[in-house]
């Protein structure tokens, strides 16, 4: 029998056969996050004459559990850009800190931070693409709102694959299915941007948030709105979905107490 110390406390080879030591290997394929953990749902964005509006609710879900209810998913960058995050909340925090460090570094130059929303969008899309190419994606779908180089309203999206997409109104997550049709009806393609006022855009987003609260099970009736215009960024936090009416729910078949 083997009496050497390395065999103490181990199953005896002569009884159980030699131990397959490959189980003890610490090296092997490196594991990356392949699914999000705590997530935020829709972010909505609409351009109007002279600016952009973003909206997002305050919920962070852990799977189907409504885990955190005071999460601010619209994050300011510098004085002129806002980034709206859906997807993984901890990845959002990582990106938020990344942008913060860039803002600090940009301020070191004599001109201050001159990065606009377009620059931020380009940068973030490249960060997202790099990370997905490493099979270690940042699990977010983001909307970047602000102004471009010509000081025109800018709204664009980037997702966890690094895909970018731009349109006068955008929505991520469930909102891409539920809010986009509403926004397309309110602001059809032939309607020029100059005809859309700030109040119209804000009202449209409030309506969309309400529809999403009705129909998206991972949503919340508390939300934030950010208006980015030449006057600066106006945040309206802790907003409540007003004038709710669940009467329509009675007519939906296949759910609840209805049997037929």
């Amino acid at each position: 029998m083997n009496h050497f110390p390395e065999a103490w406390g181990r199953p005896r080879d002569d009884v159980y056969g030699p131990y397959n030591s490959s189980y003890l290997q610490t090296t092997g394929p490196k594991g990356h996050t392949q699914s999000p953990a705590v997530t935020g749902t829709t972010v909505l964005g609409v351009k109007f004459n002279g600016g952009v509006v973003l909206a997002a609710d305050s919920l962070a879900s852990y799977g189907s559990l409504a885990r955190f209810t005071d999460v601010k998913r619209l994050r300011k960058f510098g004085d002129t850009a806002v980034v709206g995050f859906s997807g993984d909340i901890s990845d959002m925090q990582y990106i938020d800190r990344l942008l913060d460090s860039i803002d600090v570094r940009e301020n070191y130059s004599a001109n201050g931070n001159t990065l606009n929303a377009r620059n931020i969008h380009t940068y973030l899309s490249k960060v997202l693409y790099k990370r997905r190419s490493e099979f270690n994606p940042l699990w977010n779908h983001i909307l970047v709102a602000g102004f471009d180089d010509d000081k025109k309203p800018f709204l664009s999206s980037a997702d966890l694959l690094g895909t970018t997409f731009s349109a006068p109104h955008l929505a991520t997550g469930f909102g891409a299915h539920l809010a986009i049709p509403i926004l397309r009806r309110l602001f059809p393609e032939e309607k020029p941007l100059e005809d859309i006022s700030k109040d119209e855009a804000v009202a449209a987003l409030r309506e969309c948030v309400k529809v999403l609260w009705y129909r998206d099970a991972r949503s919340l009736d508390q939300y934030s709105i950010a208006v980015i215009s030449a006057q600066g960024i106006e945040f309206q936090e802790d907003q409540q979905v007003e004038a709710q009416s669940w009467a329509f729910a009675e007519t939906i078949k296949g759910y609840g107490a209805q049997v037929n």
């Binding site: 209810t69 005071d70 999460v71 909340i89 925090q93 990582y94 913060d100």
Partner: peptide
């Protein structure tokens, strides 16, 4: 805190 999402 940097990256803080809510107030708890």
């Amino acid at each position: 805190v940097d990256g803080q999402v809510g107030n708890g």
